[in-house]
């Protein structure tokens, strides 16, 4: 079985002739992510779109796990899939009345979008393949895999977020944080993002709050409905 698979998809072939699980899972998740993303585009029903999107994002999380970014993967699951999509589905359901669940797009637009998207894809893929260092470098790097296998990502990320870098040079002992040579941490962006999130929460709650003023004040009603026309 393994040899035939290897002939079909050499990326799955392992040195000893068995199945390369890493390649297998990568192919699995990549295909899932891409196909489901395409399904998002093709689907007409909004809820189904959201469903496909969730699965696509989940598959991407799998890709992250494969790339050794476990924390980011878990974060992707937690926030993107768990949080963002629940929000999105909320929105879908709150606004889902029959006529609006699917709104047809003219075929002309679709064709045009396909052309433009194809061009963009071509450009991006050309760029992706243009860097020789970007393909198969794990083969040249040697010890990278062994290191990566046990390299925890949560603590270094956490430390980086509070402003201390313990990865890279520090972990390998070449430099110490006292030298001042290590790359800087992300305390400030972290704080900014946290404040940003707070502001966004408040702002979103303000924007989305129900407009009860319609009944109480005639002036406000004019502004909120007629003003937009």
């Amino acid at each position: 079985m393994s040899s035939s698979v290897a002939q079909l998809l050499p990326v799955l072939a392992a040195a000893e002739g068995g199945l390369n699980w890493h390649g297998f899972f990568f192919l699995l998740f990549a295909l899932l992510a891409c196909c489901l993303a395409v399904a998002v585009v093709l689907a007409d029903n909004v809820v189904r779109m959201a469903f496909y999107l969730v699965l696509s994002l989940g598959a991407t999380a799998g890709l992250f796990f494969l790339a050794g970014a476990e924390f980011v993967g878990a974060m992707q699951l937690m926030i993107y899939v768990g949080g963002t999509l629940v929000l999105l589905i909320f929105g879908v359901m709150l606004t889902a009345q029959e006529p609006f669940v699917s709104i047809k797009t003219p075929v002309r637009d679709k064709v045009l979008a396909g052309l433009v998207g194809g061009a963009l894809l071509a450009v991006l893929i050309q760029a992706a393949l243009s860097g020789p260092a970007w393909s198969g470098s794990a083969a040249e790097g040697g010890g990278g895999v062994a290191l990566a296998a046990g390299q925890p990502s949560a603590t270094p990320l956490g430390m980086a977020l509070v402003g201390i870098r313990v990865d890279g040079d520090v972990a390998s002992g070449e430099k110490s944080p006292e030298d001042g040579q290590v790359r800087s941490g992300y305390l400030l962006p972290f704080e900014i993002v946290s404040v940003h999130l707070l502001v966004v929460l408040v702002g979103a709650a303000y924007l989305a709050r129900s407009k009860r003023r319609k009944s109480s004040g005639g002036q406000g009603a004019d502004l909120s409905t007629g003003g937009m026309r």
Binding site: V54, E70, F71, A74, M78, T155
Partner: peptide
Amino acid sequence: RLNVGVFYVVAVLGLEVFGVILAGYA
């Protein structure tokens, strides 16, 4: 064995609600 085990478990457990929402809608 993940070095983000707790996080992973909680994150995945949170996905369960997704099925419920889909069921409710569908």
